[in-house]
Protein backbone atom coordinates (compact mmCIF):
# COMPACT_ATOMS: atom_id res chain seq x y z
CA UNK A 1 0.00 0.00 0.00
CA UNK A 2 2.86 2.33 0.88
CA UNK A 3 4.37 1.60 -2.49
CA UNK A 4 1.17 2.28 -4.40
CA UNK A 5 0.68 5.51 -2.50
CA UNK A 6 4.24 6.56 -3.12
CA UNK A 7 3.66 6.05 -6.83
CA UNK A 8 0.66 8.32 -6.59
CA UNK A 9 2.60 10.98 -4.74
CA UNK A 10 5.56 10.79 -7.06
CA UNK A 11 3.32 11.56 -9.99
CA UNK A 12 1.33 14.29 -8.34
CA UNK A 13 3.39 16.04 -5.71
CA UNK A 14 6.90 17.15 -5.41
CA UNK A 15 6.73 18.28 -1.88
CA UNK A 16 9.43 18.07 0.74
CA UNK A 17 12.22 17.39 -1.70
CA UNK A 18 15.62 17.76 -0.11
CA UNK A 19 18.85 18.74 -1.79
CA UNK A 20 20.50 15.41 -2.26
CA UNK A 21 19.49 13.26 -5.17
CA UNK A 22 16.96 10.65 -4.23
CA UNK A 23 14.22 8.57 -5.66
CA UNK A 24 10.88 10.27 -6.15
CA UNK A 25 9.42 7.21 -4.48
CA UNK A 26 11.38 7.84 -1.32
CA UNK A 27 10.30 11.46 -1.02
CA UNK A 28 6.72 10.33 -1.62
CA UNK A 29 6.87 7.78 1.17
CA UNK A 30 8.27 10.47 3.41
CA UNK A 31 5.43 12.82 2.47
CA UNK A 32 2.95 10.04 3.14
CA UNK A 33 4.42 9.35 6.56
CA UNK A 34 4.57 13.02 7.45
CA UNK A 35 0.97 13.69 6.47
CA UNK A 36 -0.65 10.44 7.56
CA UNK A 37 1.90 8.90 9.94
CA UNK A 38 0.28 10.15 13.13
CA UNK A 39 -3.17 9.16 11.89
CA UNK A 40 -2.02 5.62 10.97
CA UNK A 41 -0.04 4.96 14.13
CA UNK A 42 -2.53 6.54 16.51
CA UNK A 43 -5.75 5.13 15.10
CA UNK A 44 -4.23 1.65 15.13
CA UNK A 45 -2.68 1.77 18.62
CA UNK A 46 -4.47 4.50 20.59
CA UNK A 47 -5.84 1.90 23.02
CA UNK A 48 -2.61 -0.07 23.47
CA UNK A 49 -2.62 0.53 27.22
CA UNK A 50 -5.96 1.99 28.28
CA UNK A 51 -7.91 -0.91 26.71
CA UNK A 52 -5.95 -3.42 28.76
CA UNK A 53 -6.46 -1.37 31.90
CA UNK A 54 -10.19 -1.10 31.23
CA UNK A 55 -10.52 -4.84 30.49
CA UNK A 56 -8.19 -5.58 33.42
CA UNK A 57 -6.09 -7.88 31.24
CA UNK A 58 -3.19 -5.62 32.26
CA UNK A 59 -3.36 -7.46 35.59
CA UNK A 60 -2.14 -10.64 33.90
CA UNK A 61 0.90 -8.72 32.69
CA UNK A 62 1.64 -6.59 35.73
CA UNK A 63 1.65 -9.56 38.12
CA UNK A 64 4.28 -11.25 35.98
CA UNK A 65 6.60 -8.66 34.49
CA UNK A 66 8.06 -5.32 35.49
CA UNK A 67 5.96 -2.27 34.67
CA UNK A 68 8.87 -0.85 32.70
CA UNK A 69 8.96 -4.00 30.56
CA UNK A 70 5.28 -3.60 29.75
CA UNK A 71 5.65 -0.03 28.48
CA UNK A 72 8.85 -0.78 26.57
CA UNK A 73 7.27 -3.95 25.18
CA UNK A 74 4.28 -2.00 23.92
CA UNK A 75 6.60 0.52 22.29
CA UNK A 76 8.71 -2.15 20.60
CA UNK A 77 5.67 -4.09 19.40
CA UNK A 78 4.13 -1.09 17.65
CA UNK A 79 7.45 0.32 16.46
CA UNK A 80 8.64 -2.96 14.95
CA UNK A 81 5.32 -3.42 13.14
CA UNK A 82 5.82 -0.12 11.32
CA UNK A 83 9.52 -0.74 10.88
CA UNK A 84 8.75 -3.93 8.96
CA UNK A 85 6.05 -2.23 6.86
CA UNK A 86 8.35 0.62 5.88
CA UNK A 87 11.38 -1.60 5.44
CA UNK A 88 9.40 -3.65 2.93
CA UNK A 89 8.52 -0.57 0.89
CA UNK A 90 12.15 0.55 0.99
CA UNK A 91 13.28 -2.85 -0.23
CA UNK A 92 10.87 -2.63 -3.16
CA UNK A 93 12.04 0.90 -3.93
CA UNK A 94 15.66 -0.16 -3.52
CA UNK A 95 15.18 -2.89 -6.12
CA UNK A 96 13.70 -0.42 -8.60
CA UNK A 97 16.21 2.34 -8.00
CA UNK A 98 19.17 -0.04 -7.52
CA UNK A 99 20.19 2.07 -4.55
CA UNK A 100 19.80 1.78 -0.77
CA UNK A 101 18.24 4.78 0.95
CA UNK A 102 19.58 4.26 4.46
CA UNK A 103 19.36 7.86 5.60
CA UNK A 104 15.77 8.31 4.43
CA UNK A 105 14.79 5.10 6.12
CA UNK A 106 16.34 6.21 9.43
CA UNK A 107 14.66 9.59 9.11
CA UNK A 108 11.23 8.02 8.69
CA UNK A 109 11.86 5.62 11.56
CA UNK A 110 12.76 8.53 13.86
CA UNK A 111 9.44 10.11 12.95
CA UNK A 112 7.62 6.82 13.59
CA UNK A 113 9.38 6.43 16.96
CA UNK A 114 8.05 9.87 17.89
CA UNK A 115 4.52 8.96 16.82
CA UNK A 116 4.58 5.64 18.69
CA UNK A 117 5.82 7.19 21.96
CA UNK A 118 3.20 9.92 21.74
CA UNK A 119 0.53 7.29 21.11
CA UNK A 120 1.59 5.34 24.19
CA UNK A 121 1.70 8.48 26.31
CA UNK A 122 -1.82 9.42 25.21
CA UNK A 123 -3.07 5.89 25.83
CA UNK A 124 -1.85 6.29 29.41
CA UNK A 125 -2.98 9.83 30.10
CA UNK A 126 -6.46 9.42 28.59
CA UNK A 127 -8.05 6.51 30.41
CA UNK A 128 -11.03 5.73 28.18
CA UNK A 129 -10.41 3.94 24.87
CA UNK A 130 -13.47 5.64 23.38
CA UNK A 131 -11.88 9.01 24.14
CA UNK A 132 -8.57 8.04 22.58
CA UNK A 133 -10.40 6.83 19.46
CA UNK A 134 -11.59 10.39 19.04
CA UNK A 135 -8.29 11.95 20.12
CA UNK A 136 -6.30 9.81 17.68
CA UNK A 137 -8.34 11.01 14.69
CA UNK A 138 -8.26 14.61 15.86
CA UNK A 139 -4.52 14.61 16.56
CA UNK A 140 -3.79 12.52 13.48
CA UNK A 141 -5.21 15.33 11.35
CA UNK A 142 -4.21 18.32 13.49
CA UNK A 143 -0.57 17.46 14.22
CA UNK A 144 0.64 17.47 10.59
CA UNK A 145 -1.27 20.66 9.87
CA UNK A 146 0.00 22.46 12.97
CA UNK A 147 3.45 20.93 12.56
CA UNK A 148 3.97 22.05 8.99
CA UNK A 149 2.44 25.45 9.72
CA UNK A 150 4.88 25.93 12.61
CA UNK A 151 7.80 25.30 10.27
CA UNK A 152 6.67 28.00 7.85
CA UNK A 153 5.11 30.55 10.21
CA UNK A 154 7.08 33.26 11.99
CA UNK A 155 4.60 33.72 14.85
CA UNK A 156 6.07 33.37 18.35
CA UNK A 157 3.94 30.34 19.25
CA UNK A 158 5.09 28.48 16.15
CA UNK A 159 8.68 28.96 17.30
CA UNK A 160 7.87 26.82 20.32
CA UNK A 161 5.68 24.28 18.57
CA UNK A 162 8.22 23.60 15.86
CA UNK A 163 10.75 22.37 18.40
CA UNK A 164 8.22 20.08 20.05
CA UNK A 165 6.87 18.42 16.91
CA UNK A 166 9.08 16.37 14.57
CA UNK A 167 8.40 18.29 11.33
CA UNK A 168 11.00 21.03 11.71
CA UNK A 169 13.76 18.45 12.23
CA UNK A 170 12.67 16.40 9.23
CA UNK A 171 12.57 19.44 6.95
CA UNK A 172 16.00 20.52 8.24
CA UNK A 173 17.33 17.06 7.44
CA UNK A 174 20.87 15.95 8.19
CA UNK A 175 21.70 15.17 11.79
CA UNK A 176 18.56 16.98 12.94
CA UNK A 177 16.64 13.75 12.42
CA UNK A 178 18.03 12.48 15.73
CA UNK A 179 15.94 15.04 17.66
CA UNK A 180 12.54 13.39 17.05
CA UNK A 181 14.16 10.20 18.32
CA UNK A 182 15.36 11.97 21.49
CA UNK A 183 11.90 13.44 22.01
CA UNK A 184 10.50 9.93 21.57
CA UNK A 185 12.74 8.61 24.35
CA UNK A 186 11.72 11.54 26.54
CA UNK A 187 8.02 10.79 26.05
CA UNK A 188 8.58 7.10 26.70
CA UNK A 189 10.37 7.92 29.97
CA UNK A 190 7.44 10.16 30.94
CA UNK A 191 5.03 7.34 30.14
CA UNK A 192 7.14 4.99 32.29
CA UNK A 193 7.06 7.39 35.22
CA UNK A 194 3.27 7.74 34.97
CA UNK A 195 2.75 3.99 34.66
CA UNK A 196 4.95 3.22 37.68
CA UNK A 197 2.61 5.24 39.90
CA UNK A 198 -0.66 3.99 38.44
CA UNK A 199 -3.09 1.64 40.22
CA UNK A 200 -4.27 -0.96 37.72
Amino acid sequence: MCFAASKFFSNNLDILQTDHAESAYVSSIRALVMFLGFLFVMSLSHDAINREVENQTIRFLVTKSARSSIVIGKFLGIFLFWLICILCSFIVIGLFAKQIFVFDFLQIMCFIAYAVSLTILISLVIKKPSHTTFASILLGIALPVVGLWSVISTKFISEIIKYILPYYYIVKGGYYIIFPFFLSILMLLTALAIFQRRDL
Partner: peptide, 18 residues
Protein backbone atom coordinates in the same frame (compact mmCIF):
# COMPACT_ATOMS: atom_id res chain seq x y z
CA UNK B 1 8.22 -5.81 43.59
CA UNK B 2 9.68 -6.88 40.23
CA UNK B 3 11.74 -9.53 41.99
CA UNK B 4 8.68 -10.63 43.96
CA UNK B 5 6.82 -11.16 40.67
CA UNK B 6 9.36 -13.81 39.70
CA UNK B 7 8.59 -15.99 42.71
CA UNK B 8 4.81 -15.71 43.03
CA UNK B 9 1.94 -17.12 41.00
CA UNK B 10 -1.16 -14.99 40.82
CA UNK B 11 -4.65 -15.54 39.53
CA UNK B 12 -5.82 -11.91 39.50
CA UNK B 13 -9.40 -10.80 40.01
CA UNK B 14 -9.67 -9.75 36.35
CA UNK B 15 -13.01 -9.28 34.63
CA UNK B 16 -11.77 -10.32 31.17
CA UNK B 17 -9.29 -12.44 29.27
CA UNK B 18 -7.67 -12.08 25.87
Amino acid sequence: IDQIKRIIGVMPDAANYY
